[in-house]
Amino acid sequence: MKKIMNAPERFVAESLEGLVLAHEGLLAFGGGRKFVRRRVLAPGKVAVISGGGAGHEPLHSGFVGRGMLDAACTGHVFTSPTPDQIVAAMDEVDTGAGCLLIVKNYDGDVMNFEMAAEMAAPRHAVETVIVEDDAATGPAVRSRGRRGVAGTVVVEKLIGAAAEQGADLAALKALGEDLNGRIRSMGVALRGVAVPDNARETFVLGPEEMEFGVGIHGEPGLARTRFADADAIIRQLGEAILAEFPPGLLAAEGLRPLLVVNGFGGTPPIELYLAHGLARRFFEARAIMPARALTGTFVTSLDMAGLSLTLALLTPDQFALWNAPVATPALGW
């Protein structure tokens, strides 16, 4: 799989440099280029820090900016950043109100952020929110802990907005934990990916196959199934999502659903918009009326072809946080 790349070992650094150059008004590199930060910090607010492996762009560095993240630490492709990066970010962007770490639920990410939090404990008040939105890795598959996938954007946006409005560390942690029950995502891949160091794709699909229930690391999903038309794909994704919400939540009154259609990197807008229309119809037929939509390429798996749906069942207050102003490279209103 060809990539616009000079060399695997410079791939991530050169991409981050381009991102920062393209958005110099919003972004700057942190010390030693260990992370990307808001150019101008907002003193007194909790510092919201996230990060993870590269290959998911614009996640996370593309969501650094007013109303979202203060810093993002990027590892090698599909590899968590190391604790020194995360500690450096805390040291540089914590203006006194502490640090809220947003971590996707992968053992590597969790452990590296945890080690960083331990190292930083003498100097920083730190809380961690683990994102677990993936409907493909619910209790039926795994005894505990779903993966964090495209729903991470929703968590980062809402926590970022709350922090901007002055919420304290405990409130942000509580918000993150509440959101974990409210957000479910499900993805399908039409073509696998090769990480820069490897010549081969992690999985190879035939012309009549798709990989259902995939994550965002090019790893195999729940099942290899027969490629289907868009209606059938959306129905399968939608049903898997609805099945994984905590009992009762779907029937709760006054929710404001948010629908995210996320491309995995190799899927063009024409297909994403089509998927959005079908997903909208799918949910509306089940009396779930999305109050807002986000359709585009936000949480990628390099250039994997395919997409995920995310449904977030927000309270009116949470929905207001979604609508709050945001100015980042990849999300702005």
Binding site: G53, S80, M115
Partner: peptide, 14 residues
Amino acid sequence: LVMNIGGAAGPLYG
């Protein structure tokens, strides 16, 4: 190892 591997292997071997 911790400061260079990242991923799961870094914290574990580290």
